[in-house]
């Protein structure tokens, strides 16, 4: 298997990207890497070129570049050249820590959608904190599309199901629809329509509406949502966790000697909590619904996170997660066309 890597994307690129890829190369000897970037900047950080091939890309898409314009105008950028290599079958998957919008646009417009998919969805894995038999769940869309139609959410449910099965190893994933209440009639027009379709879908283990406060308690394996809500919930979850940690820290600092002594004794507990909350160990966000795995990790990712994300891509490729989706939509093309027509009435 061969992975295309955007060596220029991310706050610490290319140094941490190269270090992460070297770490991943040592972990997964079966993977070959094509690193797209300005080779004179990338090469000095490369200690050992085994299984790593540097490919010159003259241009760089910056974090602030407007996505679609950037991929149309910077044809010699690492993101465009990497995506083209995947489209042309030279590489099997694409990884970047760079401009999310540009990566999504490259995935969508250069690598292209799987036949039958209307809008690909951006998917992220989050931790489940208080459940012995479940340690993670999947949420999509978390921001590929701000405006979603009921048919898009129906397809997210199918995409999420296959990802949970092939990558997370959940046999019959519980699919929940993120809504503002658990009753079937909750929500706006879009969510009511989606509930109706999911409730009658044959192939899906739909458990009904779920509320955002239950997500980290493992209420579902796959949480389906529109991109606008999903993005807001994701950022709120991250922000709340960080604010809580800050609050605990400042309370300890203000608590005098006894507070500090207590905190010192609880240090292993805090470490354990920190490790559970560290969602970077689950890898990056995946654009589901395109013809090859396209994965984005945080712009602030360092080597360890990047290597973990490569592990996630390795699992996707090994378990043929994209092929499964292609087969499903191939076999159900008439059903999909009918569902789309029904939902647009």
């Amino acid at each position: 298997m061969k992975i295309a890597v955007d060596a220029m994307g991310g706050d610490y690129a290319p140094k941490e990207v190269v270090a992460g890829i070297e770490l991943a190369r040592d972990r997964y000897p079966e993977i070959e890497f094509d690193l797209y970037g300005q080779t004179d900047k990338v090469k000095p950080f490369l200690n050992n070129a085994d299984h790593i091939n540097l490919v010159q890309a003259d241009e760089v898409i910056a974090m602030e570049d407007e996505p679609v314009r950037a991929i149309r105008r910077k044809k010699q950028s690492s993101i465009v050249l990497g995506a083209q290599a995947v489209r042309d079958g030279k590489d099997d998957a694409f990884f970047s820590a760079g401009n999310t919008g540009a990566l999504l646009a490259a995935g969508l417009l250069i690598i292209g959608r799987i036949k039958g998919i209307d809008r690909p969805g951006l998917t992220t894995t989050l931790p489940v904190l208080n459940k012995p038999d479940q340690d993670q769940f999947l949420m999509l869309d978390v921001g590929a599309n701000a405006d979603s139609k009921p048919f898009n959410l129906y397809q997210y449910a199918i995409l999420g199901k296959y990802y949970a099965q092939t990558v997370m190893g959940v046999k019959n994933p519980r699919i929940g629809l993120l809504n503002n209440g658990t009753e079937a009639d909750k929500g706006d027009m879009v969510h009511k329509a989606v509930h109706e379709v999911l409730a009658t879908a044959k192939d899906l283990n739909f458990i009904g509406n779920v509320e955002s406060r239950e997500l980290l308690n493992g209420v579902a394996d796959v949480v389906v949502t529109d991109g606008f809500t999903g993005n807001a919930v994701l950022k709120n979850t991250e922000g709340t966790a960080l604010s809580m940690l800050k609050l605990i820290k400042s309370s300890i600092m203000a608590g005098g000697i006894s507070g500090k002594l207590g905190a010192a004794m609880l240090k292993p507990v805090f470490k354990d909590i920190q490790s559970k909350m560290d969602y970077s160990k689950y890898g990056g966000a995946v654009l589901l619904g395109v013809k090859a795995p396209v994965i984005k990790t945080h712009g602030s990712a360092k080597a360890e996170t990047i290597a973990n994300t490569i592990g996630q891509i390795q699992t996707m490729l090994k378990n043929h997660s994209v092929d499964n989706v292609v087969d499903y939509f191939d076999a159900h093309s008439e059903e999909m066309a009918q569902a789309k027509a029904d939902m647009q009435k």
């Binding site: 149309r72 969508l108 417009l109």
Partner: peptide
């Protein structure tokens, strides 16, 4: 064709 098909085509 939808709007994405059209942008792909232009590209």
């Amino acid at each position: 064709a939808d709007s994405i098909d059209f942008v792909e085509f232009i590209l």
